[in-house]
Design a binder for these strands. Structure first.
Lengths: 239, 239
DNA sequence: ACCTGAACACCGTTCAAGT
DNA sequence: ACCTGAACACCGTTCAAGT
């Protein structure tokens, strides 16, 4: 922390010495420490050693700061995701794309909160960026033979499923991770739940429903379903 | 609001006159008005015309009150969902079950927040109730010919997908509902997004990716994929 | 134009004091 | 055992005053 204090009194900063970008960076640092839910403007200001009210000069409401963070988050995620690649099959690409998406959000709760969970508006630029990503995927699928509508829906379904598993995994990790294993034994009683008891005993499944295996499984069922769809799309064209 | 005040001073309540259940009910009423995120213990107390500190006597922390609400929410949802029904096909049942689930959460943000989104622990009893519901579905699927592991995964995949669409729908409804239609025209520009532009122009799709059509589509792709799986499960048995 | 402290309303929580 | 007001630390936000 830079020392800019004299006798505990803040030295007044010169105009222009606080860039909005600095505030956003500090907000990310604090959010990573305290979580988005516990992010406080006061802590952001403390992190930069500026007055809280200075933050409010640049972002009139906390919500505005969060929106700016969301925009950065959307950009960051978009850059981490692979671009459509015609060198591999559409199926291999989608597998790679959504596996990567899951990994990105799983390893960064702040990004998941800002982009996937929190109720907020994004800037027009961010929304634009998002849809441009979708456009590229749809184009890839169309060139692979899907009808445009099916290409759109295929991508939407995978996005929705991946979002579901990210949130499931996150809630379970944060809430119960410490207890689920010990619970697993007392939770599933053989009398009223013979099927689940058997599955748990033989270690065939994880109770979380959001493990790597679960994701791989769900993804491949969806992709196989879409392969069937592709056949009928192609049939229709050749008729 | 019951009048229990004399000259603006609260009349002291007799011991035992505040039931925990009353506080929970009031909390639901306030949450439905203000949303879970904006639920304040002060407002709950005001709603019952009791002292804030009285709430804290019954629930030592706000988190405890939220947990009690979550438990009630889980019970409420479970009662609204249909029970496994052997009179119809497994596919028809799952379609009905998850369509209903989507509807329940969609029409009640508080339930969705408490059960699906918020990071919290549930009581052992609630978790038990949830897994008992899963057990019944798994048993139904096993009796339809699925292997236990596939039955579990099939259900888990549908649950995850449904959760994803509920959250997608909710975030989009709350954040952009007013703007998305007017945005739709300026957002999708034909130059950089010819595919999406065409789809939007012809009204073939909704940008939300969480419409009724989207859900029906995703659900049926998953169910068809599982039908394929059933065939191979049955094949294995007859071998 | 930008940075700041004082001040305010609201919130979650503690505690000692009532019955 | 249960209900309460006073009191506290923290939060988001406004505003008038500095430079």
């Amino acid at each position: 922390m830079t020392v800019t204090r004299v006798d505990g009194v803040r030295k007044r900063r010169e105009r222009g010495s606080i860039a909005p970008e600095d505030i956003i960076d500090a907000a990310f640092a604090v959010a990573e420490r305290d979580s988005i839910d516990n992010l406080s403007v006061q802590e952001v200001a403390k992190h930069l050693d500026i007055a809280v009210t200075s933050v409010f000069w640049h972002f009139r409401k906390k919500e505005n700061l969060l929106r700016a963070m969301s925009d950065e988050a959307i950009q960051a995620v978009q850059q981490l995701l692979p671009s459509p690649n015609t060198a591999i099959s559409w199926r291999a690409f989608l597998e790679e794309y959504y596996t990567k998406m899951r990994e990105v959000y799983r390893t960064n709760d702040v990004l998941a909160d800002l982009v996937l969970i929190r109720l907020s508006e994004y800037s027009l630029a961010s929304t634009h960026l998002t849809y441009q990503g979708v456009e590229k995927i749809v184009a890839l699928l169309v060139s692979a033979g899907f009808s445009p509508v099916n290409a759109w829906r295929l991508n939407g379904t995978l996005l929705t499923y991946t979002r579901g598993i990210i949130i499931s995994e996150r809630t379970q990790r944060i809430q119960q991770v410490a207890t689920i294993d010990e619970r697993q034994s007392t939770l599933i009683v053989p009398q009223s739940m013979p099927q689940l008891f058997e599955l748990v005993q033989t270690n065939s499944v994880s109770l979380s429903m959001a493990s790597d295996d679960d994701f791989t499984f769900g993804l491949s069922v969806l992709l196989s379903g879409f392969e069937q769809l592709l056949k009928s799309d192609q049939q229709r064209v050749s008729d």
